[in-house]
């Protein structure tokens, strides 16, 4: 791959993991916590958010040079609100049940700090193509986070994932998982677990580097052995 391709590829992948909106940047928490009582709701919410994010990134990137910087936030919000209205109306017509379940959290995509944050940090400075890639990447990261959070809560809260029962009837569902408190606890534990994994890997890599580059005698000396 040429250098340019690598950087375009990176525009997409950074949102998936390195800068995952939920786990790493702690953005878009309201919908992430509120709708993830089941995996399906999480996926629907993430797809709706991605749609809004991709289209507003595209439009805002196109008109980025026309917007005076004093009123940029207001202009971004109007563009975002327009796309949210579209999503809301389409969902109400096509998926009335899903729309009822997600309730006011669909219109609240307008104030999802993830979307506004991407406009401010990326689309307002980059061309439409790269902005769309960035938006798709962030959307994918958001989808992964919401789907996994929703799956865990659904599994322990109602014994199933995506409506398919996975745990036996003998398993008493943990009511707390589908209550608000469960959302906070699950996400907190997931984030902590991920951090622990990353920390451990980093420590192992550091140990590897040390053992490769430092002469054996030095290591031995630092461990207090006679050389």
């Amino acid at each position: 791959m040429s250098k340019k391709q690598v950087s375009l590829f990176n525009d997409y992948t950074k949102g998936v993991w390195d800068q995952n909106p939920v786990f790493k940047q702690v953005l878009g928490m309201c919908p992430a916590l509120a709708v993830t009582v089941s995996a399906m709701n999480g996926i629907a919410m993430a797809l709706a958010t991605t749609f809004v994010l991709v289209f507003s990134s595209f439009i805002i990137s196109l008109i980025r040079k026309l917007i005076p910087s004093q009123v940029r936030i207001a202009s971004y919000i109007v563009v975002i609100a327009t796309f949210v209205t579209i999503v809301d109306l389409v969902m109400r017509a096509q998926f009335p049940e899903l729309s009822k379940e997600l309730g006011p959290y669909i219109p609240l995509i307008v104030v999802n700090c993830l979307i506004l944050g991407r406009q401010e940090a990326f689309s307002s400075k980059n061309n439409p193509f790269r902005s769309v890639l960035d938006a798709l990447g962030m959307g994918t990261g958001f989808l992964i986070a919401l789907a996994s959070l929703g799956a865990i809560r659904e599994l322990f809260g109602s014994r199933s994932i995506l409506g398919v029962q996975l745990l036996p009837d003998a398993f008493e569902p943990w009511l707390i998982m589908i209550l608000p408190a469960g959302a906070f606890l699950t996400l907190g534990l997931m984030m902590g677990g991920l951090n622990a994994m990353i920390l451990r890997r980093k420590r192992r890599e550091e140990a590897d580097i040390l053992s490769k580059h430092i002469p054996k005698t030095y290591v031995a000396a630092s461990e207090g052995q006679e050389v």
Binding site: V26, A183, L185, L187, G188, M191, G192, G193, N195, L199
Partner: peptide, 14 residues
């Protein structure tokens, strides 16, 4: 160390 910052805050919120 892994729980400092956002994770512990979320657990307290829970």
């Amino acid at each position: 160390a892994a729980f400092r910052g956002a994770p512990i805050t979320l657990i307290v919120a829970g």
